[in-house]
Amino acid sequence: MIDLGISKMALIGAVALIVIGPEKLPRVARTVGTLLGKAQRYVADVKQEVNRSMELDELKKMKDTVEGAARDVENSIQTSASDFEKSWAETTGSAELPGMESFPEYKHPKKNWRLKAGATPQWYKVRAGVRTKALSGAARVARYRPAKFN
């Protein structure tokens, strides 16, 4: 890297003062400062992106190793379970394990179990005069029409 000490910075400043002039030097210094700041931010962003991609690669490798271990465990469990079933069938003479009788599929006891049941009892609603069914406009007119128009 370039080693910039105080003496070199003073020399660069003196040359810039002579070449650019005292009127334009502050504006040029601000511009150079903003450009250097943008360059530093860009370099930092690139470094972060490289670090993220490296971490992503490491995570992918770790995921592959964990999935491979899970597959190995699953295969070993399946083979041991099949060996156990074979040995059980040989010793007992039946293919079914105890407690593994075939049962019908579970069915929820309520017919419409997804519908929410109200907490207020129906008898209370009838006694208090709460409407439980919505009437259309025509049905409401027909129900509450005075007797002389029927």
Rank of each mutant, 00 (worst) to 15 (best):
E85T: 04
G37I: 01
V50Q: 05
K133S: 09
K61E: 14
S87V: 08
T120N: 04
I6N: 10
Q48L: 12
I18H: 13
F84E: 00
P121A: 03
L59Y: 07
R127G: 07
N51D: 15
V73C: 08
L25F: 06
V32C: 05
N150G: 12
Y144N: 12
R41C: 07
R27C: 05
A10Q: 08
E96A: 15
V46Y: 11
V19D: 04
R127W: 13
K148W: 15
E90I: 07
A147M: 10
K60V: 07
S76Y: 00
W123P: 02
P121H: 00
P146K: 15
Q48I: 13
M9L: 13
Y42W: 11
A119C: 08
E23H: 07
K47G: 06
A138Q: 12
E90H: 10
K116D: 00
Y42F: 15
A134Q: 11
K148C: 10
E58T: 09
K60A: 08
S53H: 14
W88G: 00
S87F: 10
R145K: 12
T120V: 14
S80H: 02
P98S: 01
L4A: 03
A39Q: 09
I77R: 10
M9F: 04
Q78R: 13
R145A: 10
T132C: 06
V15K: 05
G118T: 04
G68Q: 05
E101A: 09
A117S: 15
P26Q: 00
G129E: 01
K86I: 06
L97Q: 03
F149C: 11
G13A: 14
H108C: 02
A142M: 07
V130W: 01
R143G: 09
S80M: 05
R41T: 13
R143S: 10
L11W: 02
R140P: 00
K8L: 04
D3S: 04
A119Y: 07
A44T: 02
Y124E: 06
E90L: 12
N112H: 06
G93F: 02
Q122E: 09
L59R: 10
S53M: 13
M100G: 08
A128R: 11
R131I: 06
E74H: 08
G68R: 05
Y42K: 15
D3I: 11
L11Y: 02
L17P: 01
G137R: 13
K116G: 02
K133N: 03
L135N: 04
T31C: 07
S76R: 13
D64H: 09
G137W: 08
T79F: 03
K110A: 05
K60C: 05
